[in-house]
């Protein structure tokens, strides 16, 4: 999808499928997905935007924009989860009135449950059960071996079974 001459990449957007159509089709789903990962809609909007910027910058060099979007969004969510104040927990944030977006009750409850997981478990669970990705696709998004994903999901399900039990 791209050609390079020396150090300069030549871009021909007229030969590419439209980024705007991709953006319109994927934005809402991506923000929702990342909201589950980080427990904050406002933060998710910024992470999704950053992911879309990365895709646009490499649009003509990406073979599978959908898979690349999952990877960018997962990386963005992981970076944010790792850099945030570890003294605050996700359930604190989900119920915090500091949120600039008013969360639905269902969102607060789900964020509370997901907050019991490790960062990578949380990302994997959202990609598996919200996005319906295979373990191979999740491994690509998390940049890990496929064999790592199964145990992540197994441990996460055990925690969530207790958290979400009626």
């Amino acid at each position: 999808m791209s050609s390079a001459t020396g150090r300069e990449t030549v871009t021909d957007h007229t030969a590419l499928p439209g980024f705007p159509a991709f953006y319109d089709a994927r934005l809402e789903r991506t923000v929702r997905q990342v909201s589950l990962m980080v427990g904050s809609v406002a933060v998710a909007e910024d992470i999704a935007h950053d992911a879309m910027v990365q895709i646009y910058e490499r649009w003509d060099a990406i073979d599978d924009p959908g898979a690349y979007l999952y990877r960018c969004a997962a990386n963005g969510a992981l970076r944010w989860l790792r850099s945030r104040d570890r003294s605050s927990t996700l359930d604190d944030e989900a119920g915090s009135p500091r949120l600039t977006v008013v969360p639905a009750v269902e969102f607060v409850e789900m964020a509370d449950a997901l907050g019991r997981l490790t960062d990578r478990q949380r990302i994997a669970v959202v990609l598996r059960y919200y996005e319906d990705l295979s373990e191979t696709e999740i491994a690509a998004a998390l940049d890990c071996r496929t064999g790592t994903v199964g145990p992540l999901l197994t441990r996460a399900r055990a925690v969530l079974r207790k958290e979400l039990a009626p």
């Binding site: 969102f107 409850e109 979400l164």
Partner: peptide
């Protein structure tokens, strides 16, 4: 259960 709860949790989010 996870699929249903996650879908319901974010259905109102419209960026």
């Amino acid at each position: 259960l996870l699929r249903d709860r996650m879908e319901a949790a974010v259905t109102d989010i419209r960026p």
